[in-house]
């Protein structure tokens, strides 16, 4: 991401002074005997677009509530842009689009935005955010008469009013049809290109794959994987390396470290591996292999493998 701003730290790596957009350390949250968040450490830099992906009940919303200061963790530290969630919200630096509710039916779309705008010392014009959310045409409509998708766009417009540094979306497209989802994400994507940090929770794999730079997979209140979509796909299922190699010796290849499973079909060799780079290097440098292709297994395979109950715990930590 290109940066024209001279201030330090935007999208940069550890070691400088700029605070992280989100910093969680050892966060636990339980409701009675239910452990909703079970020790989450998380660090999100400015400018990242991060998906929080997991099945229902994985602890996504509970973690988001902690980041927003809507609930207090039982233990652990939370910092948002170097301050407490409450301070960040009071300054309009963080805003959120929650799943449902949160609107008054008897106000119009524009009035709802005016209401919210009046609370911030630093606010974008109402007309501008309605335009960016694509709801200028329904500005005078009562909220109660708006469709689910229109209400969600209004929540998005409200979240943009304070020009936040961090935007959090909790399952923002639940209940929208395909077209609604696409146009909602195109509005978010356009906004994120301006450099805002975005964290969104979803259980739609395609959304995470299409719109996030980084995917954090959660299960039972823990992070089970953290990396780019490609890294996560590789982690769970490995990759397939395909090459053309005449007269390949299947048994010999299968004996090499990293060649987890080898298939030879005529001149074609298929290798399933967790170390695709090493396999490719070996094939290209020590054999006559050519026309080499590396393909990842789908994110869906990774998702099922990593979030199902028999997934092994040691798959954690392919950090970005």
């Amino acid at each position: 991401m290109t940066v024209t701003n001279a201030l330090p730290g935007r999208g940069s790596q550890a070691g400088d002074v700029a605070p992280r957009a989100v910093e969680l350390r050892g966060v636990h949250k339980n409701f009675g005997s239910v452990q909703a968040v079970n020790g989450i450490d998380l660090s999100i830099s400015s400018g990242e677009i991060v998906a929080f992906l997991g099945p229902n009940g994985a602890g996504k919303t509970s973690t988001i509530d902690v980041i927003l200061g809507l609930s207090r963790p039982n233990s652990g530290d939370v910092s948002v842009l170097g301050m407490s969630p409450h301070q960040a919200i009071a300054r309009g630096l963080v805003s959120a689009v929650l799943q449902t509710g949160g609107l008054l039916k008897d106000l119009t779309v524009a009035e709802t935005a005016q209401y919210t705008a009046s609370l911030f010392t630093h606010s974008r014009p109402v007309t501008e955010v309605l335009d960016r959310a694509g709801i200028t045409a329904i500005a005078d409509r009562k909220v109660g008469k708006c469709s689910g998708g229109e209400q969600q766009r209004l929540r998005f417009a409200m979240a943009l009013l304070s020009d936040p540094e961090l935007l959090i979306l909790d399952e923002p497209t639940t209940g929208m049809d395909v077209e609604g989802r696409r146009s909602f994400w195109s509005a978010i994507r356009q906004d994120a290109e301006r450099g805002r940090t975005v964290l969104f929770a979803t259980h739609y794999l395609e959304e995470a794959d299409d719109y996030a730079d980084r995917i954090i997979l959660v299960r039972h209140g823990k992070i089970v994987a953290d990396g780019t979509a490609a890294q996560i796909k590789a982690m769970a299922a490995g990759r397939t390396v395909r090459a053309t190699l005449p007269d390949a010796d299947e048994t010999a290849l299968a004996g090499i470290t990293g060649f987890d499973h080898v298939e030879v079909n005529g001149d074609t060799v298929l290798v399933h591996t967790g170390q695709s780079d090493a396999v490719a290097r070996y094939l290209l440098t020590t054999t006559a292999a050519h026309d080499l292709e590396i393909t990842a297994r789908g994110l869906e395979d990774a998702f099922i493998a990593l979030t199902s109950d028999d997934a092994t715990a040691n798959q954690q930590g392919a950090s970005a």
Partner: peptide
């Protein structure tokens, strides 16, 4: 191409006075 949005200076952002009380809300 979209110009990168200027980074809000975290230190210049202030919480509103009076806990956010204002006449716009009262009117609405």
């Amino acid at each position: 191409s979209i110009a990168p949005r200027p980074l809000p200076d975290l230190n210049t952002r202030r919480a509103p006075g009076l806990g956010g009380f204002n006449l716009t809300i009262l009117g609405l």
